[in-house]
Write a protein that binds this DNA or RNA. Structure first.
Lengths: 190, 190
DNA sequence: AACACCGGAATGAACATTCATTCTTATATT
DNA sequence: AATATAAGAATGAATGTTCATTCCGGTGTT
């Protein structure tokens, strides 16, 4: 276990970017090394192999995202306000970790994830499902499969984020408020 | 170009399934050959190489999906009815080509797609955007980025389909009607 | 027998991983 | 303070493996 934490961090953030943009299987270790400005061998001083690297990354961001959502959670407020908190959490998290949510979305379920990664992801999903279930009980949220509603929310949000990032669209508060409203109308009981 | 159309079809449908389930980069030619019950070399009698194969597949299903949506399109009916037609098109298309939409969704934008594939996909998107734009003009659809709304619709639908296919949920008409309603409420102007 | 078509072993390129070597930094010695 | 020495890090060329692709012998059809 070497010292320099900045090298390890460089490797992790380069890997995150490349995995998000090209996918795990299409990114090579030399690509990561090059992006991180590090020798290829150096990566193996910090991570046993490519799979350990991707699992480390996955767990790190899944946990961090879960924490972001849990922080200051308004458990006693209305369902609508709880939803707002969650949506805000997504935007806050994504503005600090540009590629993280997209990486998680495209790699959950991949064949190389280990049990810990799967369990961490499952835990995250369960929190979201729990929120939706409470809303269903209260008659505020539609009685539809939670996973489908989660897909709607993440799909809409991440696509919006991509459009902003690629410069196709200007980032305004109204825009994100509008998409939040759209997602809310998708899941609320009418 | 050999004769047997069934071998070629076997190769294509095996490739579709594997690409959808594991992704292009994680799928090897021997895997496809094995699944299609064909020698590895045979694949090269029908397709110049792996990239030509994936582009063929991509274009084939993008075009077929576009045709499915265009068929009997109720251009003179209400926006709501047009939306219903499009949503029905997704379910119809998916019930006949189980993995096709998921494959398209996960591989559009991939580095190995050629210009024809990109253009075909663009054309499909433009039709959907055109529908949304008409709805916006009529004041029936929200003024939000079309891409974000498209992501909401496909995300919700495909996730639902996965849940059904994995057996986690029973397929009923009500279920699909419910998700259609949810997607409609996500995009309609309130 | 000539021909078309196949299968799958053989090939070579690209990749993940290893390892002998070099570089850096900290500590000890004068 | 200057120099020597060692330990730990970092490197990238070398290695073994996996894969896309090729090629050749076999099989069936006319």
């Amino acid at each position: 276990m070497p010292a320099s934490t900045t090298k390890r961090d460089n490797i992790l953030s380069s890997a995150l970017m490349l995995f998000a943009e090209r996918g795990f299987d299409a990114t090579t270790i030399p690509m990561i090394a090059n992006e991180a400005q590090v020798g290829a061998g150096t990566i193996y001083r910090y991570f046993e192999n490519k799979e350990v690297l991707v699992n480390t990354l996955f767990q790190y961001y899944v946990k961090m995202f879960a924490e972001t959502l849990a922080e200051d959670y308004p458990g006693n407020s209305s369902i609508r306000e709880q939803f707002h908190h969650l949506f805000r959490g997504m935007t806050r998290f994504t503005s600090e970790h540009e590629h993280a949510l997209y990486f998680i979305k495209t790699h959950n379920g991949a064949y190389f994830l280990d049990n810990t990664s799967r369990a961490d992801f499952e835990r995250l999903l369960n929190r979201l499902k729990h929120f939706l279930d409470q809303g269903k009980e209260a008659g505020v949220i539609r009685d539809l499969p939670s996973m489908a509603m989660i897909a709607i929310i993440f799909g809409g949000f991440l696509e919006l984020h991509q459009l902003v990032r690629s410069g196709n669209i200007e980032e305004t508060d109204d825009l994100f408020i509008g998409v939040e409203e759209s997602c809310w109308d998708a899941i609320r009981y009418h």
